[in-house]
């Protein structure tokens, strides 16, 4: 906030033409790239009326896809929250060799193509892998089953929470925790009373981002799914399947579920951002 007001007062007064041109271009861009497609999705989904729409989204396969997407998202958020907290904590509060390497590794899923992520797990847990006999003996299926989809989702989303926490923890330093420790506070108390209040909003924001990314994941999940209908198909995969089946209206109807979920997340995000700023 402070930065923005500064640049406005310090810099020369920008010409109103440039200002409106930039605003116009941004709005036009957003409209063409975002608003128009979204309207099309909703319009196509409702093309055959609300009854047909309801029928399309209450199809058992669509329902199972929604379930699986939510399941994978919940797992991704819970696991990545725990992991993100640990990682961010370790990196900012302790000094150790290989710290830079750890931070780089955390960022890896952002740079690696999701397809590669999927293939890595196929090679690690698939029939060709060394541990497959063990998995088979214990009747555990990872790839082409729900655990594989959860793994893929966790992989592609794991930087989101730690990345939000890192700068906040970094800025905060370790002084307060050290003081608390000297006064005799135990580990978890320090975390609950000192650290958590500082990072609460960053954490929530990270969770929101992680949720959004987890629900939309396509590439890695596609490689690990096997496309077993009604069993290992998530919402984005179900949309692709329906398109291939020449069922366009249902494809858009299922897409609209994703759009609605995304809008809900956007609203939650804005609220979190707003409250977070107020608290500061």
């Amino acid at each position: 906030m402070a930065k923005e007001t500064q640049s406005q007062t310090v810099g020369a007064k920008p010409s109103p033409v440039v200002k409106w041109l930039l605003i116009g271009l941004s709005v036009l861009f957003l409209f063409v790239m975002l608003v128009l497609p979204l309207i099309t999705v909703i319009q196509e989904a409702l093309r055959k009326g609300f009854a047909a729409y309801r029928e399309a989204i209450s199809d058992p396969d669509a329902f199972s896809a929604l379930n699986l997407t939510l399941e994978a998202t919940v797992f991704a958020v819970v696991i990545n929250t725990v992991f993100g907290l640990f990682a961010a904590w370790a990196v900012t509060k302790f000094r150790f060799h290989g710290k830079k390497l750890l931070v780089t590794l955390i960022d890896l899923p952002v740079t690696v193509s999701p397809i590669i992520a999927g293939l890595i797990y196929v090679l690690t847990f698939g029939r060709q892998s060394a541990i497959y006999p063990f998995l088979e003996e214990h009747d555990l299926r990872v790839v082409y089953a729900v655990p594989g989809i959860i793994l893929a989702t966790v992989f592609v989303t794991f930087p989101f929470i730690s990345r939000e926490l890192l700068p906040v923890l970094e800025a905060q330093g370790t002084d307060e925790e050290e003081a608390a420790a000297m006064m005799g506070a135990k580990g978890f108390t320090i975390f609950r009373k000192i650290t958590l209040p500082h990072i609460r909003w960053a954490l929530l924001y990270g969770i929101v981002l992680c949720t959004a990314r987890a629900m939309g994941e396509f590439g890695a999940v596609s490689v690990l799914s096997g496309h077993l209908r009604g069993q290992t198909v998530t919402l984005p995969l179900q949309v692709e399947i329906l398109f291939g089946d020449n069922k366009y209206m249902p494809a858009f109807a299922v897409s609209s579920i994703l759009v609605i979920l995304a809008v809900v997340i956007l609203i939650v995000r804005s609220i979190v951002e707003y409250i977070g700023k107020e608290k500061k």
Partner: peptide, 9 residues
């Protein structure tokens, strides 16, 4: 997650 969903499909 593995044991819940891994078998029985």
């Amino acid at each position: 997650a593995v044991s819940l969903t891994g078998c029985g499909s």
